[in-house]
Design a binder for these strands. Structure first.
Lengths: 235, 235
DNA sequence: CTAATAGTGTCTCTGAGACACTATCTA
DNA sequence: TAGATAGTGTCTCAGAGACACTATTAG
């Protein structure tokens, strides 16, 4: 930052503020379906303090990257997944949210297929693991709050977008699709009403392939009509 | 920030990133109704460069305040309004969004009554003025994009919250309320359907006072049932 | 009594939710 | 043919939108 530019632009009153001692991070909430549970990717510190606590994957923002790029980079480092679905959620800025110092964090939500996640303990300070949302460990600082916010957003988005596609394989049956909705929303859905709704949303189409998965009538395989998210960040 | 804490927590890989050369600001989009137009508060640089351009009011975040507090503080400095409605929108982080240097900005939306705004040219580097949204001047950098985003959010929020109250006086007629909706949404609304909708939202109640405003039947004055925003940030 | 705005009731259409049966496969 | 899941049709109710008339005041 060229200081003279700032000086020209701002009154002395503002000039005092240019020295900022704030670090900026991104937190990425990675949701996935694993063993028929809504799950989330968490990292663990292997050293004290807070050794027993898990955290949402996070990282510092580089000077020459956007927040979104930082989130993508972090996620790729942790999971090897590129081009996942990513959406900015909210920026958390409580002064004492991180006892180590002043850290403001922009939270993102990512959606991945579990089979794509190639989580690794990349450095000795980290270990990555998928946890079921109904058996969450103790989380760092305000990470529980961030996670709750993300879950709410995910549930909301399922209703009027096609983001569910990032939690499913390329081809799937309507029963599988319904199951994912039920898992995320945590409620049972009526088969017929669900199919009507999906039909109206227009997010899937038949592949005309059928698949036999047991001693019963085979199910039609469907695919998503578009890879583009119907409503992303409304930007 | 105590460096040893960070070192303990992070791998060398991350340690490199701790030196961040990023400044953090808040931008506050202030909407108000003025002369039957949806309007926005903008500031002007009185010196080169970009002297002709207007900007959304902004300011640096202090080390010991939240983003929200920074936005409130800035707004109070510019307008003398305290306790206005304020909502976080989105954090804009394009690397080149500000040609003067790396500045990441968290955008907030505020709603004010025009008569409450006591805008002032506080320093010689600024001048504050309310502009109609349909006669916007040229704006700094990405400020037009931020403003568009804010408008969209405002329109959306009108539909299912009572935030409109921050644009109206304490007592008002249903016609006035409808007019504000029409101004913001930029569309005409059916009188009867509008009243049914407001009734269903349950955000207003009768004061049983009537007001005569011309040679016609007097209108009932209403007030909002609650000052609490029905759905704020869903946090 | 005219002009101007306040205020109300009804019909239609569409979408959401409740609900029960038939279809097709394996073993 | 039994067991298991796939797949469909209809009724009801509620909310959204279109639409026309009466009420009350000042001048």
């Amino acid at each position: 930052m060229k200081l003279y530019d700032v000086q020209k632009d701002l009154s002395p009153h503002y000039l005092l503020m240019i020295k900022q001692d704030i670090l900026l991070t991104v937190d990425s909430i990675v949701f996935t379906i694993y063993k028929e549970k809504l799950s989330v990717l968490l990292i663990q510190r292997l050293i004290e303090p807070f050794k027993d606590m898990r955290a949402i994957p996070w990282g510092f923002v580089l000077d020459n990257e956007t927040l979104e790029q930082a989130a993508y980079r972090e996620l790729e480092e942790e999971t090897k997944v590129k081009n996942t679905y990513l959406e900015q959620l909210y920026t958390f800025s409580d002064v004492d949210r991180d006892p180590r110092g002043r850290v403001i964090s922009c939270a993102y939500m990512a959606l991945m297929r579990h089979e794509d996640i190639n989580a690794k303990a990349e450095s000795d300070a980290k270990e990555v693991k998928v946890f079921s949302m109904d058996k969450l460990p103790k989380l760092w600082f305000d990470h529980k709050k961030i996670l709750d916010y993300a879950l709410q957003r995910l549930r909301y988005k399922l209703e009027y977008t096609n983001v569910v596609q990032y939690l499913l394989p390329k081809h799937f049956t309507l029963s599988e699709l319904q199951q994912v909705y039920e898992i995320v929303l945590n409620e049972e859905l009526d088969v017929r009403n669900f199919r009507k709704k999906i039909d109206k949303l227009g997010i899937v189409k038949e592949t005309w392939e059928r698949v036999v998965r047991g001693a019963h009538r085979p199910a039609m395989l469907y695919e998503f009509t578009t890879k583009k998210t119907v409503i992303v960040d409304v930007l």
